[in-house]
Write a protein that binds this DNA or RNA. Structure first.
Lengths: 123, 123
DNA sequence: CTATATGCAAAAAGTTTGCATCTCC
DNA sequence: GGAGATGCAAACTTTTTGCATATAG
């Protein structure tokens, strides 16, 4: 099994986003002798291929997660357990495009992240 | 004039977001002998006070800008010149809250960044 | 005089790169 | 044997911290 597959398996097993360091730690915990550099290289490749989503944490880390849907989408993230749900958001798409046009902006892309507390964590 | 005011003046003079390093460079260019550590400390304070907006760049830097409106808002950012316009977005607010509720999420906050090319940069 | 602010340099934290080795074809 | 993958360690970038000095009230 290639290191790439090891990283993919780790991401696939996670409910939400993982930092590179977390991927590394989990693999080492499973006795897989991967290097941190390889983790970073694989994650960068997955991002480039569009296989993984990327968000930046408040602490400045880069977090990765496998894309569950292929198209453009957004995330709903639990701030306590890190659980992430992917959202389809035609409404925001249209909103974003419209607002941009009003301001004379073109060629628009956007980021939407919603963070809250999920039912499980609300207790 | 305190270093805090120097940093505030620099942010106020910028059309968009600035990285800490840019604030530092601009101040040094104006013969102001500030330390990089102070820039970071002041920016962190401004963020904590809610005086400055913060976004993370794709490169992992933390970018700062003075808030122009006091309430919650979003940004429309030009990817070429960095010009940023602040948006009021009642529509997204409602959308975000609604989507969250559907998924059993509570206590929601969100981030929306729209990036495009402004009329000036489109040529 | 005491508390806070500041500068410098060192230290962290996260990420990337150089390079030798190892693997698979 | 050769291209690409990998590990390790060193380098880099951004940000934070320790500590001594300077400044404000």
């Amino acid at each position: 099994m290639s290191r790439r597959d090891d990283v993919l398996a780790t991401l696939a097993a996670a409910p939400g986003f993982l930092a590179a360091q977390q991927v590394y730690t989990r693999l080492r915990a499973r006795q897989i002798g991967i290097g941190l550099a390889t983790v970073y290289r694989v994650l960068a490749a997955l991002e480039a291929e569009g296989v993984a989503d990327v968000v930046r944490s408040a602490g400045g880390e880069t977090l990765y997660r496998l894309c569950r849907s292929s198209g453009h989408h957004h995330h709903l993230l639990c701030r306590d357990c890190g659980r992430a749900e992917e959202l389809d958001a035609a409404v925001v798409e249209r909103w974003a495009a419209g607002v941009a046009r009003e301001h004379g902006f073109d060629d628009v892309s956007h980021t939407v992240e919603i963070v809250g507390r999920c039912s499980r964590c609300r207790g």
